[in-house]
Amino acid sequence: MTLTHLLLVAAALFAIGLFGMLARRHAIGVLLSIELMFNAVNLAIVSIAWSRGLATGVVLVLFGIAITVAEAAIGLALVLLVTRVRKTAVLDDLHDLSG
């Protein structure tokens, strides 16, 4: 298992996340896809840190995961609120900012 394999997995994960972000119709699905992309990036950082024998990458990713938890909490709260007010969380129905 080399760094290349790991980075390929990370890239695949990122691409799947990107596709999900653009293609999912439900807000929660989009949020999950964004998490997936985030974790793909985390995986890439950890992989590079592992291949170089550095600890800073791991520390950085730990911090990142902690922040992502907070961000996910806020994102889910927003989705809940939108669902309660607009009776839907399907993104195509939420287009009030159209020009």
Binding site: M21, V30, L91, L94, S98, G99
Partner: peptide, 17 residues
């Protein structure tokens, strides 16, 4: 130009991507 501003969040995300 205003038709670009569809108000749908994923259309904006396409531009981000």
């Amino acid at each position: 130009l205003r038709t670009l501003q569809s108000g749908r969040v994923q259309d904006a995300l396409y531009f981000v991507a």
